[in-house]
Nucleic acid binder design. Structure first.
Lengths: 237, 237
DNA sequence: AGGTGCTTGCGCACGAAGTCACAAACTTAA
DNA sequence: TTAAGTTTGTGACTTCGTGCGCAAGCACCT
């Protein structure tokens, strides 16, 4: 497969790096994961049809998504798996590892610490914080080493020392807003919030929310809907 | 201006209960949670402006969302908090509790079991399943009582006995597809998947996915973008 | 009773996202 | 080289979601 130099002379500025739709960005991580898996399995080339099937999207959507990043495919052939994986990763900013601070070392926090998906996809837990005096000072093994849980008061120092750029809130709902304020004060501008509250942060700070109960309620809605009318009466035409 | 009566003759069926947009449904759980909180705090009436602010959405969006369910507000006054909370809950199917089976009692699974948000929002964990022989047979306290972890082979019996309607997959990625197959075989049609894989299920089964690493990667993308170009160069026209 | 001040419900327009279909571009075969 | 067979990249079209603006409707005051 000597499709090595193909898109070489093309500057291709276009909207590359500018107006990538949010919906596309939300799918890129999936593409990266699937491409990495394929690469590990020895697959060197893949068509949009096959890749789309593995990612659970339509081929047209996949091609349009990728076209926002540039022309990394070869017509009549498909995409070079490793080449595409690299470029999508680069677009997502996964070439260098990101430092993550986890606040709230309860059940969920500890589950996050031991979550393998972090390390394998470019994220490193560089700090653990909790408010409870019994937990502060204890050591927890994360990845290769050990981390000592620090107090919320030391958050700013922790962020400054480790250069962490992302904060994860896995505290109870009552504490979440105060933690968010501390994170912002410490210079963090990207927050992932697991607490079931709507956080209030200044402009320039991005908050993404994961609410487990919300997901269940959405499922419940559709489940209920299905049970209500098992016969759509347009059955046998 | 005698064009007053316009929608009078229209039977008013509209799309109530039918075509509620997915985007709206995804926001309804938030409305319910905020309304419940307000109700507990003794608030009896709220305007779309205030409620929207508490929910982190625009007033127009909130009103349009609620209008899909029916006319539960009073012009010039606002919405009755308890009344609206009841009707939105009802629409989501939260009047009766839903049975949830959790497959995979690792770190994440145990975090889910002890997650307070389940019980308080109409969901009850009625079964725990794991494949590891060391875990099967052990008891775990959930909510008020205790649950014994059962084997994956007993899943169908468990679902039939408890009447569970929702399955949560919190296993490693490798096991997820097999678990999903088992859930479908057991009659489950609503699945919440935490494993970072694209599940393959037959039509009629709904899968919702929560991927922690994906959320972080989306944050990383925006964080990277911010750092790249602090000056958008189109400043003083 | 009539007027005034709010707030909801909703039509309408706009923008974002998804689908379709096809020309461009590449590989392979003869 | 030429022709046939693939597959990408993308412009046009459709669908979906959101924001704007205002008439309809309710409460309160005079």
């Amino acid at each position: 497969m000597s499709l090595s130099r193909r898109n070489v002379g093309k500057t291709r500025t276009r909207d590359v790096g500018r107006g990538i739709p949010d919906a596309t960005i939300a799918r890129l991580p999936v593409y990266v994961r699937v491409l990495k898996t394929m690469s590990d399995d020895g697959v060197t080339t893949v068509s949009s049809e096959d890749l789309a099937a593995s990612c659970g999207v339509s081929p047209a959507k996949l091609r349009k998504d990728l076209s926002h990043l540039g022309s990394y495919g070869t017509r009549g052939v498909g995409y070079d798996v490793a080449f595409l994986a690299y470029h999508v990763s680069r677009e997502l900013g996964l070439t260098k590892p990101w430092g993550v601070v986890i606040i709230g070392v309860g059940n969920l926090g500890q589950a996050l610490v031991s979550y393998r998906g972090f390390a394998t996809r470019g994220f490193e837990v560089v700090g653990l914080v909790d408010a409870h005096p019994d937990v502060v000072g204890t050591s927890i093994s994360v990845g290769g080493g050990e981390l000592t849980v620090t107090s919320l008061d030391d958050l700013a120092r922790l962020v400054a020392r480790t250069g962490a750029q992302i904060g994860v809130i896995s505290t109870p709902a009552e504490a979440a807003q105060r933690v968010a304020d501390s994170l912002v004060a410490a210079g963090i501008r990207s927050i992932l919030n697991f607490a079931p509250v709507v956080l209030c942060v200044p402009d320039g700070v991005e908050v993404r929310k994961v609410d487990l109960a919300v997901e269940l309620q959405i499922l419940a809605f559709h489940e209920q809907r299905r049970g209500e009318k098992p016969l759509p009466e347009v059955m046998h035409a």
